[in-house]
Design a protein around this nucleic acid. Structure first.
Lengths: 233, 233
DNA sequence: GTGACATATAAGTCTGACTTTTTGTTCCCG
DNA sequence: CGGGAACAAAAAGTCAGACTTATATGTCAC
């Protein structure tokens, strides 16, 4: 997905990034550029570029006379799409999925409320189309087709909110929804109640009912939280 | 703040990053590595490292035979703390501040609710301490001291939520609050109502009343939205 | 023990030569 | 006149080697 192997330094990152985010090198571990360059069979300049990228993600810190130090998890740029992808691919996947779902539960309802205010006529139409697509594929194990429309639906909501920070979470939501379909739960057809909620959200947005759009979306995300057993006793 | 001038490539970024995020090079503009290296009087290797970092932030894209292309704003990693800082420093500051405040309004109430469930005794104590500090400095133009406790308060809430994604927004909130005090509104003492709300949130968290903590925080962030005139007619 | 100094180490920087990919042009043939 | 294949140029990508600089750490005198 996205940009695989854009140059040698990218290949190095494809190995080193997942390794670090998976915790293979505990915080405080020290790596040396030369050693890494040898290990990956690339020149020092290529290795340096890779290290610079990791540094900009706050995964490592490079200091003279010391080496490349792995930073503690709390320093990482966990919003970097690349970091998110690496972590979702590793053993920390469940925890990452929970974090992201909680984030969704905070952001999406507010985004839906804003979308009800700012969505263009075209976006309203898209939304309805997505919702209908979900309905049409909600039965008969058409999981892939359902997922496609589900992702599109949430993307439109986030974009239509008019807030760039929300809009940029579209990719995250896509990953979470795809993960749910492909890895975790959802062996059978999606919950009919959820499908209905999506249709109702589309209606609420079209009707410019921000309050209702927000509340309905809150119900959707609460469902997502329940699927992962994230809730108070 | 943070890491100024960590190496030559960092200096280049300190100039080029703000320039790009400020829109000095419109999307689609093409730069050449060699030319940039000359302009900044650094070697090509240093320039390449800088470009790699910009690339990892999705500010630019480097392609063979073409050059370094500036990407449209919608591609940027707007959650990268560095990008946020650059944009807050430029002419897009007001818009950026609004985006971030809307994000806060979505995240912080949910974070407060979670904090009420997960906060340790120590965190509860910190929270109360911060709230008291806010009260103590809420009169007599002690804006800096007030800001300090305000930032600390929101950081504790975000951290205590137990969600790493929320916790990492502490820096963002700090920037927004600092910006409000230093640049924009707030020439006089803070709104007493807001101060009271903070105290009540601390109480609610201590009392493990998630519902109330969330609702009170929602009132706080709604106040922040109103200060920036972000609300429906 | 404490402070100044020396040393070794690993990152940082620069340069120049070479490779590879891609784009756009040219030219030939249908 | 149009289309496709071959070609040429441009810019990033890669590599190797020499040199510089900061700094952690050990040493030695006091």
């Amino acid at each position: 997905m996205s940009t695989p192997g854009r140059g040698l330094h990218g290949r190095v990152l494809d190995t080193l990034g997942p390794a670090i985010t998976a915790g293979e090198y505990p915080a405080g571990s020290v790596l040396r550029t030369d050693e890494l360059a040898q290990r990956f069979e690339v020149s020092r300049s290529v290795m340096r570029e890779a290290v610079r990228v990791l540094e900009s993600m706050h995964l490592v810190e490079s200091r003279r006379r010391v080496g490349v130090t792995v930073l503690p998890e709390c320093e990482w740029n966990v919003y970097d799409p690349q970091v998110i992808r690496w972590r979702l691919a590793g053993s920390e996947r469940p925890r990452q999925l929970r974090s992201l779902t909680v984030l969704r539960s905070a952001v999406e309802p507010v985004a839906a409320g804003l979308a009800a205010r700012h969505a263009t006529a075209e976006q309203c139409a898209e939304l309805t189309e997505c919702a209908l697509g979900m309905v049409a594929n909600s039965r008969g194990h058409r999981l892939e087709e359902y997922l496609f429309h589900d992702v599109a639906f949430h993307r439109v909501i986030l974009t239509a909110s008019g807030n760039e920070m929300f809009a940029r979470l579209g990719g995250v939501v896509a990953e979470v929804l795809a993960g749910r379909t492909h890895h975790d739960v959802m062996f059978e057809d999606p919950d009919p109640a959820a499908v209905t909620l999506h249709v109702q959200v589309a209606e609420a947005v079209r009707a410019r009912d921000a309050e209702r759009a927000e509340q309905l979306t809150r119900e959707i995300t609460e469902g997502a939280l329940q699927e992962l057993d994230i809730l108070a006793p």
